[in-house]
Design a binder for these strands. Structure first.
Length: 312
DNA sequence: CCGGACTCCTGTGCGC
DNA sequence: TGCGCACAGGAGTCCG
């Protein structure tokens, strides 16, 4: 029997899924499913229609430490049991499910997944930490939160105001919306390497390791350059690159990291949107120079010494 | 106050 | 072939 999960909802399914059973719901260790801002925004857009206006019939928390509470209460009630879902909002890489009497903030971390299914057995699948039973025009349906590495989690709040004042207030402007001027002001305040600043969610919300490297390569800025020493033109290039790379990824349906285009049938085409990430030691696609791999802020960092010179 | 280092966790993939 | 270890990552926390 074919899985009834709509392909649009299975945002975790990627190229390698072709080698899995059709109804295999998970796809471990696929770099392209690393949940960064574009994946979260894609998730928000695809969940909006099936969730908003629907009611949570029941909520189950299978691992209590996955839910961080801002107020006491029964887990199922903190997880919006009995409430109608009114909206989905995103800030950086975080997604808020807004109920009529509470809010759940979802963070997918490294390996988190949030998906809809009509199957009823997910509560017993591995690493599934929360399951919501919700209404739909065609009968009850489940929303599943799964996170093998548990770098992600769920945060409960009494209201969106409380979420914004106690959690989201620490986040900088959203990476797809930030203005170059605001960005420049924020970079001016730190001597840290530009890449470290990009990864700091308090500076700008939503940039992860992959898109930081991709953006800096596109902007032709060396990742170790002190943020406050960037020229105005360079800051503008970085800001534009971040916006462009993320927007392009959102338009591509959650990831530019997918290796094939829908309907192209060209399965052997591995010309992906990765220009540098994961390509240390390979040739730069712009100039042919060998890409350099270093560790910066405890993260693998790949760049081209010729396209991204250290000195300006 | 700032920035660097450490920590959590598990699947993967490499080397022996 | 199999085992074991190093590695990957986001972000909170701690310490100098």
């Amino acid at each position: 029997m074919l899985d009834v999960i709509s392909s649009a909802w299975r945002f975790t399914i990627r190229l390698k899924a072709a080698f899995l059973p059709v109804n295999h719901p998970f796809n471990e260790r696929d770099l392209s499913s690393l949940p960064e801002l574009p994946e979260i925004e894609h998730l928000r857009q695809t969940l909006l229609e099936p969730l908003v206006g629907q009611r949570v019939l029941m909520a189950r928390l299978r691992r209590s430490d996955v839910l961080r509470r801002s107020s006491p209460g029964r887990a199922d009630q903190l997880l919006l049991s009995g409430q109608t879902m009114l909206d989905l909002r995103r800030r950086g890489k975080q997604l808020a499910i807004i109920g009529d009497a509470g809010v759940i903030c979802v963070h997918l971390g490294m390996s988190g997944q949030l998906f809809l299914t009509d199957r009823s057995r997910f509560g017993h699948s591995e690493h599934v930490h929360a399951v919501w039973s919700i209404t739909s025009p065609t009968g009850p349906r489940r929303l599943v939160f799964r996170d093998p590495r548990r770098f992600g989690g769920l945060w409960s709040f009494e209201s969106i105001d409380q979420l914004e004042s106690t959690r989201w207030h620490r986040l900088g402007p959203d990476a797809v919306a930030i203005r170059s001027r605001d960005f420049a002001d924020r970079l001016q305040r730190t001597r840290r390497p530009i890449k470290t600043a990009l990864l700091d969610q308090a500076v700008i919300a939503g940039v992860g390791n992959i898109y930081a490297d991709e953006s800096l390569h596109r902007a032709r800025v060396h990742p170790e350059r002190p943020a406050c020493e960037l020229q105005r033109a360079e800051v503008t290039r970085v800001a534009s690159a971040v916006r462009d790379v993320l927007r392009h990824a959102i338009r591509a349906g959650g990831s530019t990291l997918r290796d094939y285009r829908d309907g192209s049938g060209n399965a052997g085409e591995f010309q992906s949107a990765h220009l540098v990430y994961g390509r240390g030691g390979e040739a730069c696609t712009s100039c042919g120079h060998v890409l350099t791999l270093i560790r910066l802020a405890q993260r693998a960092t790949v760049f081209c010494e010729r396209c991204q010179p250290r000195t300006f």
